[in-house]
Computed example of a mutant assay.
Amino acid sequence: MDPFFLVGAVLCALSLILCVAAVVTKTYPGDAAIVSVAVVELFLVVFGIGAGIRQAGGEAVRGEPWEFWGYLVTALIVPVAAFWWAIADRTRWSNAVLAAVPVTIFVMLFRMEQIWNGAPFS
């Protein structure tokens, strides 16, 4: 397992916990939920830079590189869209949208891990 994947999984889990707590306790998006999604976005930026460095250094992607980078670009868009939703819609449901981000990103990270290192679970 790639250390980037493990760090991403932990960050997604923590973000999910904070966002679900915000759904249960708040009627509007709280700072903790928004910041946790921002941390996931920051992780994705670092992940992308690290993947670019690894690929430029000669580490081969076992799957299709365009598919890996497509997942990464899409994953970078998801937290930003949820953030703008949370800012525009100041209700409890925007917390639910924020809570969907770490779950979605975890699934995308899992798929990117399969593409990069081969797909042992497919």
Rank of each mutant, 00 (worst) to 15 (best):
P3F: 04
F4M: 14
F4T: 12
F4P: 01
V7T: 13
V7Q: 00
A13E: 11
A13Q: 03
A13R: 06
S15T: 00
L16W: 04
V20G: 02
A22Q: 05
V23D: 00
V23I: 14
V24L: 15
P29Q: 05
G30A: 04
A32Q: 11
S36I: 02
S36V: 00
V37S: 03
V37P: 03
A38N: 09
A38M: 13
A38V: 10
V39I: 15
V40S: 00
L42I: 15
L44A: 07
L44V: 08
L44I: 10
L44M: 13
V46S: 07
G50S: 15
G52N: 12
I53Q: 10
I53E: 11
I53C: 11
R54I: 04
G57F: 08
G58T: 05
V61G: 06
R62W: 06
R62F: 13
G63Q: 04
E64L: 07
E67A: 08
F68K: 03
W69S: 04
L72I: 02
V73E: 04
T74W: 07
L76V: 07
V78D: 04
P79M: 03
V80S: 04
V80L: 13
A81E: 06
A82K: 06
A82Y: 05
A82N: 08
A82V: 10
F83T: 12
F83A: 15
W84M: 11
W84N: 15
W85L: 05
A86S: 15
A86R: 06
D89S: 09
R90S: 07
R92K: 13
W93D: 13
W93M: 12
S94V: 01
S94A: 14
S94K: 01
N95R: 00
N95Q: 08
A99S: 13
A100Q: 02
V101D: 04
V101Q: 04
V101C: 03
V101G: 01
V103H: 01
T104Y: 04
T104A: 13
T104R: 01
F106H: 04
V107G: 04
M108L: 14
F110W: 14
F110E: 02
Q114P: 01
W116G: 09
W116I: 10
W116R: 12
N117V: 03
N117K: 06
A119P: 03
P120C: 09
P120Q: 07
P120E: 07
S122V: 14
S122D: 12
